[in-house]
Write a protein that binds this DNA or RNA. Structure first.
Lengths: 157, 157
DNA sequence: GTAGGTCTTCAAGTAACTTGAGGTTCAAGA
DNA sequence: TCTTGAACCTCAAGTTACTTGAAGACCTAC
């Protein structure tokens, strides 16, 4: 009776139940306590852990990267500098993604807006505005650099 | 001699060459012109198309979603309203992601900063700050809602 | 003309889930 | 107390989106 079951944890963290079982299987989260019938029970720290995991996964950080971040979060006695460096690298990658995402957002917003005014009703023939969406970003290297970062992060386990 | 080869397109868009071949195979990009020896040649519009594709993929939009967006970008005569609606849905999803990413960025930044001051040198024992990273976001539903959106977008082909 | 880097196809491998089958558990209502 | 239906269990197979490898062809530069 203490703690929530897998379905509750799932809805609270925006994860599917099978995914949670999968994470347990690969050891990304610790094996959950079972009650008599064998059903898993979870507590608040499981919500926290899984939230962190999902947030990272949502933005393309590979499981192995997430695993090391989670490990740092769990063992507080470990080298603080190591944690900081890992977090800093993570942060840089996140910022690169943030930048790219803003570019995408602006292009889309501009597209929707011009759609609104251009073809107010019928099928407009001059709706080539999407071309704008596809222009390589100002520096023309941001995308590939973000890729680089991601790949580098992946490489170092 | 006209146009660039696959390696050039790859570096310009931050894509691997095999991925480009794969995209051609599944029909996400049109079959490239070949020169005598059978090697693919690309032009500027290929850079644009692939940039758009990669930008969308980078943020988790499934291939089939990207396919329809690209299709809209190619056929300008098509229903403008349809394009707008699709783009608008896309935009909402992007904004949700943007919000989540900002939360992640701030948590990471705060973590790095407090690491800086707390353990300026040796291994600090009180480095439990990572717990902060894992707190469910303010509304406690943002993450799952973003998931919802993504799933809905995926569902409608 | 030959060396090496880049290209070709095709097949198999990988990551991170997702879905399905077939059965068990549990809380709630009759 | 019994029963029924939703939610759980395990295990296996399927899916998406690539990635890697093998074995060979091409092409530019010396």
């Amino acid at each position: 009776m203490p703690g929530m079951k897998i379905g509750d944890l799932a809805t609270r963290t925006g994860t599917n139940a099978p995914t949670i079982r999968y994470y347990e299987e690969i050891g990304l989260i610790p094996r959950a306590d079972r009650q008599d019938g064998g059903q898993r029970r979870y507590g608040d720290e499981d919500v926290k852990r899984l939230t962190l995991i999902r947030r990272c996964r949502e933005f393309g950080f590979p499981i192995e990267q997430v695993r090391s971040l989670v490990a740092l979060a769990e063992e507080p006695g470990r080298s603080c500098l190591e944690a900081r460096d890992l977090a800093r690298e993570h942060l840089m990658a996140v910022r690169a993604k943030l930048h790219e995402l803003k570019v995408l957002e602006q292009s889309l917003a501009r597209f929707v807006a011009s759609c609104e005014t251009a073809c107010a009703g019928g099928p407009g023939p001059d709706c080539t505005i999407l071309g704008d969406l596809a222009t390589p970003s100002s520096q023309a290297r941001t995308l590939s650099e973000a890729g680089q970062t991601a790949r580098r992060l992946r490489a170092r386990r």
